[in-house]
């Protein structure tokens, strides 16, 4: 029997549908409320950078700014006081080189763990992975004295070393799983095609791990960029300190700047990592997709 479509009561069907969707307004209001909790600090951040220190102290903190020009003055003050130029360059060095090296070493380790047969493979994996289990504070005192002895305290090399080392375990976890999912026949084909071990890694495995490598690179880069702990303890000299460490000049009893300048500085400090995310977002989203061709 065919249904006579034109005879259907569309009103009734729509009403039925409505019943199913009942309760939506309540959910919607709740969602707006939750979003507001998230958005108010952002709103506060954005409007504050457009205020002068006087404007900030006289008016309500959440009131709209009178113009947009004060942001330039704030930026200049922040840049000069915190020596942000040097801080940004240092952080860029630590972030790009530290995270880059860490991901590359992690890829090497993962290749070994997923492709080469050797005894106690799991033990070695757990040993590397143990690096992420303990709280980082634990390493601080031994590192401090060790660095002091080696003479790499307050040096860029020292900072790069710790950042590279500490960023290896997590990418190993991700990349090992990812490489395990890559077709083994692909390496076998490469081997038969004449590739030696490193060639298989370099020409075949690495290019196919671009997604997860980018994703883990971004995560590790952001972690290094935002790190304050190691930077404060191991690299406090002005020439060596990272951007997050540099922002600390606005803190404490000697600081004379208003919150408008501090907030401007934090926005400037977060621009590079946000930009990097935008640049690499396609790879980041593809990061976890396993290819099996």
């Amino acid at each position: 029997m065919t249904v006579a479509i034109q005879d259907l009561d569309f009103e009734a069907l729509a009403a039925k549908q409505q019943v199913v969707q009942k309760g939506v307004p309540v959910k919607f209001i709740f969602a707006i409320f939750i979003s507001a909790i998230w958005l108010v600090p952002f709103y506060y951040l954005i409007i504050s950078v457009f205020k002068t220190t006087e404007e900030y102290s006289v008016n309500h903190p959440l009131s709209l700014p009178s113009g947009i020009t004060p942001v330039f003055g704030n930026a200049v003050v922040a840049w000069q006081q915190a020596k942000m130029g040097a801080g940004l360059l240092n952080s860029m060095l630590y972030g790009v080189v530290g995270a880059g090296l860490a991901v590359f070493f992690a890829a090497l380790a993962s290749y070994g763990l997923s492709r080469i047969d050797f005894r106690r493979k799991n033990f070695w994996f757990m040993l590397i992975f143990a690096g992420t289990v303990f709280p980082f504070q634990m390493y601080l005192i031994p590192l401090f004295f060790g660095y002091q002895k080696l003479g790499i305290l307050n040096s860029q090399l020292g900072m790069l070393l710790i950042y590279t080392a500490i960023c290896i375990p997590f990418p190993v976890l991700v990349l090992r799983n990812y490489m395990n999912g890559l077709s083994r026949e692909m390496d076998e084909a490469a081997r038969m095609d004449g590739a030696k071990e490193f060639s298989v890694f370099w020409h075949i495995i690495l290019p196919n791990c671009r997604g997860p490598m980018t994703a883990t690179f971004l995560l590790q880069f952001t972690w290094i960029w935002n790190d304050l702990l190691f930077s404060t303890v191991l690299g406090n000299r002005t020439e060596v300190r990272s951007i997050m460490n540099a922002l600390q000049v606005f803190q404490g009893s000697y600081s004379s700047t208003g919150p408008n300048v501090v907030l401007t500085a934090t926005i400037i400090a977060s621009v590079p990592s946000v930009l990097l995310f935008f640049l690499l977002r396609r790879h980041f989203m593809e990061g976890m997709r396993v290819s099996s061709i």
Binding site: E185, A189, S292, I293
Partner: peptide, 28 residues
Amino acid sequence: SRDRGVAMVFQSYALYPHMTVRQNLEFS
């Protein structure tokens, strides 16, 4: 195996996904 003078076609084809057809052919 690279020196045996044998070539293999695999069940899963085992093509290199990041290379074009031409690059796949040229690789060896």
